[in-house]
Simulated assay, not measured.
Amino acid sequence: MGEPTDCAIFMNSANGSAVLDGEEVDSETSLGESISVQGVALNPVTGTDGRFTTTGCGLWVQLPPLKPGNHTLTIRGRARDFAVDVDYSLTVGAA
C-alpha cells in the first residue's frame, strides 16, 4: 500500500523475468495505477473488511493462450526488500 512516490522508489530497483516452457515472456512495467481494494475481516494487511484506495505498480506478463498439455511457468522478481520466486506446473485440458 502506498502513494505514487512509493511506487517510483520501489520500481527504481525492480527487475524480474517470466519463462514459459523455456521461452522468456516479455514483461510490461506499470509505474503506478490507482487501485481500489476490498479487504476481508482479519486480513494481514489492514485487519478490516473495509475498502481502501492505494497505488499498485510492478512488472506484469500476459501469457498467450496455451495449447492443451503440460506447461511450466517460472517467475522471478526482486525490488528493494521484496522478492518473488514461483514455479508453476500447468495442465491445460482440451477444449
Rank of each mutant, 00 (worst) to 15 (best):
L31S: 01
S30I: 15
S13M: 03
A18I: 04
G56S: 15
S34L: 06
Q38S: 13
T29A: 00
G32Y: 07
S30R: 09
I35D: 02
L42P: 01
T48I: 08
Q62R: 09
I35W: 03
G16E: 04
D26A: 10
G56N: 15
P44Y: 06
I35P: 05
H71S: 05
V19C: 05
T53E: 15
L31C: 01
T72W: 09
I35Y: 01
C57M: 12
Q62I: 01
T29M: 01
L42W: 13
L59P: 04
N15S: 02
S17M: 03
W60Y: 10
T46V: 11
D49M: 12
D6C: 05
L31W: 00
S17N: 06
K67V: 12
D6Y: 03
E24W: 00
E23Q: 08
S34D: 13
P68L: 07
Q62L: 03
F52I: 12
A18R: 05
T29V: 02
W60N: 00
C7G: 09
V45D: 10
G58R: 12
L20S: 05
L66P: 14
G16D: 05
C7L: 07
A18P: 02
H71G: 04
I35K: 05
N70P: 00
V37K: 12
L66Y: 11
L20T: 05
G16F: 07
C7D: 06
L31R: 00
H71L: 12
S13L: 04
P44D: 12
A41N: 14
S17P: 07
C7M: 10
S34W: 05
D49Y: 07
L20N: 08
G32R: 09
S27R: 10
P4H: 08
G16R: 02
V25S: 01
E28F: 02
N70R: 14
E23M: 03
P44I: 13
D49V: 12
A8R: 13
I35M: 09
D49P: 13
V37D: 10
N43S: 09
G22N: 02
I9G: 07
K67M: 11
N70C: 04
C57A: 07
T53L: 06
T48G: 11
E24H: 01
T46Y: 04
G56W: 14
P4M: 08
D6M: 06
S36H: 10
C7P: 07
S27I: 08
L66N: 13
T48D: 14
T29P: 00
V61S: 03
N15I: 01
S30P: 00
A41C: 03
A8V: 10
I35N: 04
Q38I: 09
G50T: 15
T46I: 13
G50D: 15
I9S: 09
V61I: 15
P4E: 04
R51L: 15
V61M: 06
E23V: 08
G39Q: 11
T53M: 08
P44E: 14
V37S: 08
T54F: 09
P65K: 13
N70Q: 07
S30W: 04
Q38C: 06
T54L: 10
D26G: 09
R51D: 08
P68G: 00
G69H: 04
S17H: 04
D21V: 01
D26Y: 06
D21W: 01
N15K: 14
Q62C: 00
R51E: 13
G16S: 06
